[in-house]
């Protein structure tokens, strides 16, 4: 096993007052793999995303990404290092256009200087055309119909297209590591299946992309993940392939509860 660890977290804890949302978590992601992060509600999955993406500063522990210690850096710095995420409740800017939302994800490539934005409009417009082309290619790969709606507000589009735009926004900056926080939320089974296929196809857009996926739909986890980590009460309960996870009695107990042994 000479796989390269792209992300390596050791002893990660996150306390909110007396509540330990994460405690002493060791977790790694290999380059190019899809890691499923599962566990009951409140087990610390989203907290883990928030800690690694810089929204929270961990109470203890270290996060190493591509050999660099990124513990406690700002979300901006972490984005620039190559980690992007989606949000559980899609946090797109609904009143902005599809193009605007995708370009927010492309922020690291945008020239934000006053001179080039406000005075040298020719230079800006050249960059704009480049952005239109880039966004168009990405949208076309997910849903060709979206290209024609590139300048419509996102709020006018159905949920599955909003999810697609979120994926585009995350991928347009060519990240190395993508966190997907429950992409199936609010969608039907068929839509979820379709979207997951699309996401996996997008892997080719970003070379060697690794994905960490939070998902409650076990079918999705079974189909797309290489490896799973099960969290419960902020601790790692189990780690292994989907089949191992599904067969494990401890995991079953965490999800379904203990079998009642003594019945009166």
């Amino acid at each position: 096993m000479n796989q390269e660890r792209i992300l390596d977290c050791t002893g990660l804890s996150m306390h909110f007052g007396g509540l330990a949302a994460l405690s002493d978590l060791d977790l790694f992601v290999n380059r190019g793999e899809v890691l499923g992060l599962v566990g009951p509600n409140g087990s610390g999955k989203t907290t883990f995303f928030n800690v690694v993406s810089g929204i929270y500063r961990p109470t203890t522990g270290r996060v190493v990404f591509q050999g660099e210690d990124i513990t406690g850096l700002s979300p901006q710095r972490i984005y620039h290092s190559g980690i992007v995420r989606t949000f559980q409740r899609s946090r797109l800017c609904l009143e902005l256009t599809v193009f605007d939302n995708v370009m927010i994800g492309n922020h690291k490539r945008l020239d934000l200087g006053f001179w080039n934005n406000l005075v040298r409009r020719g230079r800006f417009l050249a960059q704009y055309e480049e952005g239109v082309e880039r966004a168009g290619k990405l949208l076309a790969a997910l849903n060709p119909a979206l290209v024609a709606r590139m300048f419509d507000p996102v709020g006018d589009l159905p949920m599955i297209d909003r999810r697609r735009i979120e994926i585009c926004r995350a991928l347009v900056g060519r990240p190395s590591l993508l966190f997907l926080d429950e992409p199936s939320a609010g969608m039907t089974h068929d839509e979820t299946r379709q979207l997951m296929d699309e996401i996996l196809n997008m892997g080719s857009y970003s070379e060697g992309l690794s994905i960490v996926l939070i998902e409650h739909e076990m079918n999705v986890i079974r189909r797309v993940t290489d490896r799973c980590v099960v969290l419960n009460f902020g601790r790692k309960l189990f780690e292994g392939s989907y089949d191992e996870v599904a067969a494990d009695p401890v995991v079953q107990e965490a999800y379904l509860g203990k079998e009642v042994e003594e019945v009166e």
Partner: peptide
């Protein structure tokens, strides 16, 4: 606009 609509999401995109 991104700052106005959602500061947290904006920060996560640099």
């Amino acid at each position: 606009d991104a700052v106005r609509v959602d500061e947290v999401a904006g920060a996560c995109f640099g």
